[in-house]
Design a protein around this nucleic acid. Structure first.
Lengths: 355, 355
DNA sequence: CTGAAAGCGCTAACAG
DNA sequence: CTGTTAGCGCTTTCAG
């Protein structure tokens, strides 16, 4: 029945009580006589009362909103991550406002400065192109959680997988299947971002342990981490005469692009070329052949990010020094690196059905 | 420099002017003497002033927030759509708060009732399981835009592609490549949702026009629209003895699952089986073989949804009757339905690089 | 061009 | 148990 808006005051008038009593009924904070409560409730229902959040927030000094700033929402990895964060936030009665930075330093800076004005109680940001010192310089008035490799010592909590270790494991797996000319796709030399650097380091470490010197010709830089960049990098590798027998791609999207290009060139995967990705996105499972990939525990990333925010928002007194959290990961071995696809017709194991 | 918060009043005191003048400088609404402005600006900078949105909103009666309610953020279609909506909203200085309904009627109902209390100025919702009359019953106090097939006559604007036509085109395309036993994957008989029904209708229409009676054995229902459901449906079709020579899947995810299962069964695509999807997600382009798909103009969906909201929020007086908008789509033909993949090593045409 | 002050809707401290 | 009221920070009307 509500036409446009009704205030506490309107309900009070209708119920013949004071504003205070209505507030008590709504919030359940103080006890109200049963008879009064019923009358107020009736008025509440009749007017279709809904509290004005702006007023409530102004009063409380909190908004119940947290910000999530990611480079892009349309890529599978960030889509999956955002979904988990939104879900975890709902459980804690928070609402998530999402911003896309598209990797632009300006956008990231603007967000750290205030998401348009202290509208959020906390911020989860996955910085892409901001340097550590810039991260350090901001984020004074609200709690910030950093996702990924960039760190802001002494200022914000940070959550990431152990990239060096994960890359080492992926490369070692390829070595164990007998590959010797393992290419790396995903360096981003132009970026102030340690992700690629760490994965490269793990890749080198595994090679050296196997007595193989890293070969520059097998390391292919990219502009971004999308499928088309992977395809382009693969093409460059194949045409350069570097003759790789395996590829470690720094993201699943890159790997899928590389896979595509390998097919275009008539290569058989994994026989002629083995491929490993990174991120554990759902697409990888259904690629042809299914893609071996490093799977970070995204659910845990989401949970812990919110845990960090909650701790700092609700107990700012506790003043724990910023945490540096490593979440677990595992290598999911699939047909893109192992023998042949079994000819059975089974549905790959997946998450439980939603419907 | 800002420690925790500074108010207009603090800035005014520091600059030795009144609150009013500071407000003018901040908003640029009224003209201020150059000398005063400089002094105020200095104070603003020194204190690191940032306006309190809650207060501003309380005053203005607006929040600058719009809600986006979708079944799930992790699936590629909704991820891409959400990305475009968030981006389009940024251009209009709106911030998007995202809710996932996971197709639950309760969640959708709760959101339409008020997203936790009139916190948003408008709502874009992609209803999945709510019946039309429920949609009609709500959404009185803020503008609502419906995405998809469900309509709420007289209450909300609605934006969708012409599903019947699109499904007809996809099926006709398969017929034109000589297929005769075309399966349909994606019926959802248990849902109060017209999407699948309309796509089935278009499929039937094309078949009948070609003189082919629809065959129940070729119509495979699913529980959800994800890859695993597509794989399961394909397996069921192949084991049922229905012997399809083509598949029209009602979503790209279903199609990718079907493709996967076809490979598992040793079928060659498109020679033994042609596959068409629906949604135009990026994954489709890089599938093996690349997937023919119906591509809705998602960018236009996003733009028009925001246009609708803007019109109703800023000019409620205009009171245009609810619009029913059909956005364009096209069939993108790729190797999953056409002859053989060209053996060239080109990168598929894609969106311009982000980096 | 600038100052004073009202009031947006809500919560909570302070009576009664 | 319930009424009255101050005040969160901002915008804006009304004076000056």
């Amino acid at each position: 029945m509500a036409t446009v808006s009704s205030r506490l005051k309107d309900v009070a008038t209708l119920a013949g009580v004071s504003i205070r009593t209505v507030s008590n009924v709504v919030s359940g904070s103080a006890s109200v006589a049963e008879e009064t409560r019923a009358r107020v409730q009736a008025a509440l229902d009749e007017l279709g009362y809904r509290p004005n959040l702006a007023a409530r927030n102004l009063r409380a000094g909190r908004t119940g909103l947290i910000g999530l700033a990611i480079p892009e929402l349309y890529s599978p990895y960030f889509g999956e991550l955002a979904s988990l964060i939104v879900e975890a936030a709902q459980h804690r009665s928070w609402t998530v406002v999402i911003d896309q930075t598209f990797g632009s330093p300006e956008a990231e800076r603007r967000l750290l400065e205030g998401t348009g004005g202290r509208m959020v109680d906390g911020l989860i940001i996955s910085p892409w192109s901001l340097r550590p010192q810039e991260l350090t310089a901001r984020a004074r008035d609200i709690p910030v959680v950093l996702l990924g490799e960039q760190r802001a010592p002494g200022v914000a909590d940070r959550i990431a997988v152990d990239n060096v270790l994960a890359a080492d494991e992926a490369t070692t797996h390829l070595l164990e299947t007998g590959r010797r000319r393992i290419a790396a796709i995903g360096l981003q030399p132009q970026l102030h971002n340690d992700t690629a650097r760490q994965r490269l380091e793990g890749y080198h470490r595994a090679l050296r342990r196997a007595g193989l010197p890293p070969d520059e010709a097998l390391q292919q830089p990219v502009r971004a981490l999308h499928r088309e960049d992977g395809a382009r990098a693969m093409a460059a590798l194949l045409e350069s005469g570097a003759r790789p027998d395996a590829v470690f791609a720094f993201s699943d999207e890159l790997a899928l692009g590389a896979l595509h290009m390998a097919h275009e060139h008539g290569l058989r995967v994994p026989d002629d070329l083995a491929v490993v990705g990174f991120d554990g996105i759902e697409d990888a499972r259904y690629a042809h052949p299914p893609l071996t990939t490093v799977v970070p525990d995204k659910k845990q990333i989401a949970e812990r990010a919110l845990q960090c925010l909650a701790d700092r928002i609700y107990s700012p007194a506790a003043a724990v020094p910023p945490l540096d959290i490593a979440v677990p990961h595992h290598l999911e071995v699939r047909a893109s690196t192992s023998a042949a696809t079994p000819p059975t017709g089974s549905v790959p194991a997946g998450p439980p059905p939603t419907g």
